[in-house]
Every structure is written in structure tokens, then in C-alpha cells.
Design a protein around this nucleic acid. Structure first.
Lengths: 347, 347
DNA sequence: CTGAAAGCGCTTACAG
DNA sequence: CTGAAAGCGCTTACAG
């Protein structure tokens, strides 16, 4: 005999009583409860997860599906762990375990998710790196399992998501540069297929349009999350009939390569080329001149996602404001010295 | 009626047959199997995880416990995701799910682990950041659940671990510096309580002793995983009666701060101070002069850990060479220009 | 090759 | 406040 039955026998009570005592059911005599709790503690007993889940119909766990591609996992810009920190704290406070579920880039992410969902392995799910068209969202909706995505998608319609305010960031950056006198503003966009790339690029176009500036496809540079992906675009930016005088970076780490290439050409960031980075990062903080960028708290992003999920889960929903939550997290500008009026003085 | 029962009824077979077909039991008529498989596929049916685990006594999942502290999760030096990449690939190939289990620094890591273990939530466990004395190891041993640690510990005795060859790295670095003529060699060590700090420091002492060099406690600098933690130690290193002429860095990112401070003082890395970094990192790769460092593959480390675990798990052990595996993964030196003969020419 | 039935270790109405 | 018993959804000897 093992598990709860063994504990019950040793204590001379029924398994029902042990179960109630352990689960905080109020209908248990105080002395009995203490006896049970003490014994469980002493013997290191905890209810078997599988049996518990089967009986209760809930797992008390939440999955966070992330995709592993070598480019990002080994990047200095990898930021999901900071987000996990916030998620974990909120979920733990509500008695939920966070299971980070890594899906290899090489396997189909739909099938991967489907397995966890159809097996009932989690009570809720957080998805990252949403695509513009993302079948995972419809999968989650038809599964009935509460979920929230980190990032928007055109799929699914009215579901909960948390995303960064790319539009706000871009508007602020372009406003600032235009205010400094720039007219030829370039941009880098991620070279992967996540939806944020599309959103960032669209916000760029919209912001230019707001200022009556022409959109030039040749000023849009897809880059990877790599320091050296910045350097190679500098020449293309400057050596043209109408050179760009400013650039907005999706991956701020690429500033490192840009600074190097500028230095090689005897040029100075902020004077010969204005640079604004998207997400202020540790690895870039030590560049001189300091990169003008946008700041955000990664744990706060995780916290927001976890809350949006809890608001949908049966056990926790009552404590949260109801319904679907769709929120863009604003970022604040951190002025540096990497931008300023164009050297040519064009205005 | 739901789950397997519903599927069975629809197909006009017993649940036993459905179960066998789905689990690849050979004792199933081919036509029957195909019928079942087709229906399961069509209806998106997958066996309930909890029921399956309860009946089988195994979860087909492996946990990787990592500790979240804000310093490391937001560091550009965070490297566990690269390791996860390798783990996940190996485990998936053997039909095992990898659950990354984040434990907040603020909660007790022993209790955290105990919950997952005593509940039977995983079939195997990988532990990171082992301490010199680490009660988790005895916990795992008494649980009977296969486990492997990323990092050594004095606890537990003969269990499986994978660790980096800190001794080899240190010996190579010191040999190289001594060969260049250095006699006063400083070192940075991590300021946390993980065992690798102790090992690194001990290897430093041993390597000095091998060359008959005196150990000077004042040349040992605890640092965090932060770029700016390098700069502050430069002055202490140089402004003393017998200045250090070389330094070996545990966290290579701190080289960034060191380079900056040296530049401020009009000094040159590799000439006025020789620098060797431990783990070659993306964020440091663009420093000039290039930092001499040691290279390793993060996914390979994960692969090794996963294999060491599989070798202990009942279902997979037969395919692996048996027994306890304790392995130090070697790193290879990548020469840069950040070290060389001391400027004073002392020999 | 297939089915009826027991059993995995819990939780929870139900009855007292 | 407590216990006997059913039930959660599977898997797997056992019998045929």
C-alpha cells in the first residue's frame, strides 16, 4: 500500500480525511488536520500529481510555449527568461506551476501545442512569438483551454493578448527624429516570421506618412538578432544619392556593429548618423555615445500576461476584472547621445 | 462519455483496443489500428495525460529546474536556453517532454524540487547551479527518480553530473599567461553561492602553485554577471605596489567594463593588462582587441546532460552505456589579442 | 487479435 | 466532522 492509503492507515483515519486535511477543506477537526499535516510533512508525502489531476479535472499548472531557434537562444538579446520571472511570481501566488515548454524550431509548433492541449496537460497556456496568421490561436479557442498570447495575430479574433506598443515606440522615435530635422529615416526589421516584424514595419510607414515623408523600401533592412548584422548596412545607408541620416533599430544589439562600421569610416553616431534603438539592453548600455532607446520591464510583461490568463481561468477569474484583455504595453524613451540634428543641417 | 470511451464506442471496439492501437502495441489487427489512428487524428484525440500517467506509472516527461534571479535572467550572459536547446532535442527523440521548471530565487529551492518529485510529476530531473553543499542531491537520491546535475557538488557522492572543465580552463589560462611572462595574475570569481565559483577559485590557486607563484587573496575579485562590474576593479588591480599584469575573468562580459576603464586611463588591453575570458560570448565578440577566451557549445552541454539522464531511466537505459556518468566538458582556447607579454617586460 | 474487468491514487458527493 | 464508495480516464494482465 502506498500514497495516501498508507498515510491514512498509519494515522488510523480514512483516505478521505487525509485528502481533506491536505487540501485545506474546512470540514476537518483541527486536531485531525494537524496530525495529518505533521505526518505528511515528516514522511515527505505529497498527493500524486496524476491521480490528483485525474480526480479533480485540473492540473494546477500553466504552460508557456517558447520556440527554440539557435539564433535567439544564444543571442545576448534573448529576453524570455526575464518575462518568465514575472509570470512565475504571479502564477505561484495563485498556486499554479509554470511549465516552460520549449519547442524546437525544427518541429511543427502546431502539433507540439496540440499534444499538450489535447492531453489536458495544462490548465492554461501562454503562447509567444505569434505569427500574423497563427493556427495555434484557433486551436486554443476550440480546445476551450484559457490562453493568452505574447503578441498579436490576425487569427482568432477576440482573444486575450499582451504585446509591446510598437506603434507608440515608432511614433515617438520618428517624431523625435523629424523634430531634429531628419527626413531620410531608415529602419531595421526582424528577419523572422513573427508578427511583430510586420507591425513594426507598418508603424514605420504610418509614422512617416503622418509627417508627409515618402516611404522608401530601400531604407528597410531586415536584420537578425546579431551584433554584426548592424555593420553591413551602414555603407548601403550612406553611400547613395540621398543618404539616410537616421536609423531606427528593432534589435538594439545591432547598434554595436553600426558603431564599429561608423568608427571605421571616421564617422560619429549621433552626428553623422542618428540612431534610436528599440529595447534598451544591457549589452548596448556601454556604448559611447549612449544609444537613445526605449525602456521596458521584462518581468512586468510576464506579470501582465499571467494576470490576463488568470482572469480567464475558472478558479481565479472571480478575483480579476473580467473578460478579454488586449493590451499594448507602453515603453518609455530613454534619451541618449546617439541622435541629434543631421550633420548636413538640412531642415 | 468522453475520451477513449467515446472514441471506442464510435468505432465499435473496446477501449482496450483503442489504447493498444494508439500505443503501438503489436497485437492489433492492421485494419483496426488504421481505423483507430485515423479517427484519433480526425477528432484530435490524445490520451489524457493524467489518466495515462496514473495507469502507466510514468509521465514521459523530464524536468529541468532552473533558478530565476533577476541578475541572471536579464543578463546578456544568460546561457541556459542554449543548453535547453540540446536537451530538448535529445529528449524529444526518445519521446520525452522537457518541462523547464523555473524556481524563483525568493523561494526555497529544496521545497520547490520536493513538490515536483514527491508528486511524481516527472520521470527524471536535471538540476542546475549546484551548490557545494546541496541538499537537493540527497533528496533526489532518496526519491529514486533518475537525475543528473549541471555542476558538481560535495553532496551525495556517486551520482551523475556534467560540468565544465574549470580546472582545464584555468590551467590553460595560467600556463599561457605565465608563458608570456606574467607573475602577478588576478582572477574574478562569481559572487553567488554556486559551486562553480569555489571550483574556479580553487583551480586558480592550484594553477598558481604549479608554477610556484604565490597566492594573493587581494587579486581575487568577486563579480556579478554585469558589464560594469569589470571597470571598478581595474584601479585596484593596477594602483598598488606590485600591480597585477593579467586577469582571468569568470564572466567574460565584465571585459567590457575593463576595456572602458583602461581606455579612460589611456591603457591598452593586451599590453598594459592581459585579459583572458572564460566563456566566449556574443556580447564580447566585438571588443577590440578581441578577447582571448574559451569556447564551448551550449547545446552540446544540454545534449550531454540529457544523455546522462536517459542512461539512468528504465525505458531508455538499455540503449546507453550503463551507470553513473561524471564528466567535465572541455573548452577550447580561442586566442585573441587581449593578452601578451607584460608591458614592463618582467620575466 | 479482442474484450471485460481490475487497478493506478487520488477527490468528492453522499450518508451518517 | 468522518467514512464507504463511486468515479476520474486511462492501461494491462487475463481469458478467450
Amino acid at each position: 500500500m502506498r500514497g495516501i492509503a498508507r498515510l491514512a492507515r498509519e494515522l488510523g483515519v480514512s483516505t478521505a480525511t487525509v485528502s481533506r486535511a491536505l487540501n485545506g477543506n474546512p470540514n476537518v477537526n483541527k486536531a485531525t488536520r494537524e496530525k495529518v499535516l505533521e505526518a505528511a510533512q515528516r514522511l515527505g508525502y505529497a498527493a500524486n500529481q496524476a491521480a490528483r489531476s485525474l480526480a479533480q479535472g485540473v492540473t494546477h499548472s500553466v504552460g508557456f510555449m517558447i520556440e527554440l531557434d539557435h539564433e535567439s537562444t544564444t543571442s545576448t538579446d534573448y529576453f524570455f527568461m526575464g518575462v518568465v520571472e514575472g509570470m512565475q511570481a504571479v502564477l505561484a501566488a495563485h498556486g499554479l506551476d509554470l511549465l516552460v515548454l520549449p519547442c524546437a524550431k525544427s518541429q511543427d509548433n502546431f502539433t507540439f501545442l496540440q499534444r499538450f492541449v489535447s492531453r489536458g496537460a495544462v490548465d492554461g497556456m501562454i503562447l509567444a512569438e505569434t505569427r500574423r496568421i497563427d493556427r495555434r490561436i484557433e486551436l486554443m479557442q476550440s480546445s476551450g483551454i484559457p490562453f493568452v498570447t505574447l503578441g498579436r495575430s490576425d487569427s482568432g479574433g477576440g482573444y486575450s493578448w499582451i504585446d509591446l506598443d510598437f506603434e507608440g515606440v515608432m511614433a515617438t522615435a520618428v517624431d523625435r527624429l523629424v523634430g531634429q530635422g531628419h527626413r531620410r529615416i531608415a529602419v531595421t526589421v526582424p528577419s523572422n516570421d513573427a508578427n511583430y516584424g510586420t507591425i513594426f514595419a507598418q508603424a514605420y510607414q504610418d509614422s512617416l506618412a503622418r509627417h508627409g515623408l515618402a516611404f522608401d523600401e530601400e531604407l528597410v533592412f531586415p536584420t537578425r538578432r546579431r551584433e554584426d548584422d548592424g555593420g553591413s548596412l551602414v555603407d548601403g545607408l550612406l553611400d547613395r544619392p540621398d543618404p539616410a541620416t537616421a536609423i531606427i533599430l528593432f534589435y538594439e544589439v545591432t547598434a554595436i556593429g553600426i558603431y564599429r562600421r561608423l568608427a571605421e569610416r571616421g564617422l560619429t553616431p549621433g552626428r553623422d548618423l542618428s540612431i534610436i534603438g528599440f529595447r534598451g539592453e544591457e549589452s548596448v548600455r556601454f556604448l559611447a555615445p549612449q544609444v537613445t532607446c526605449f525602456h521596458m520591464s521584462l518581468p512586468d510583461l510576464g506579470t501582465a500576461a499571467a494576470r490576463a490568463l488568470l482572469a480567464q481561468m475558472p478558479l481565479t477569474a472571480p478575483a480579476f476584472s473580467s473578460g478579454v484583455l488586449q493590451r499594448r504595453v507602453p515603453l518609455s524613451l530613454v534619451p541618449g547621445e546617439s541622435d541629434g540634428p543631421p550633420a548636413s543641417g538640412v531642415r
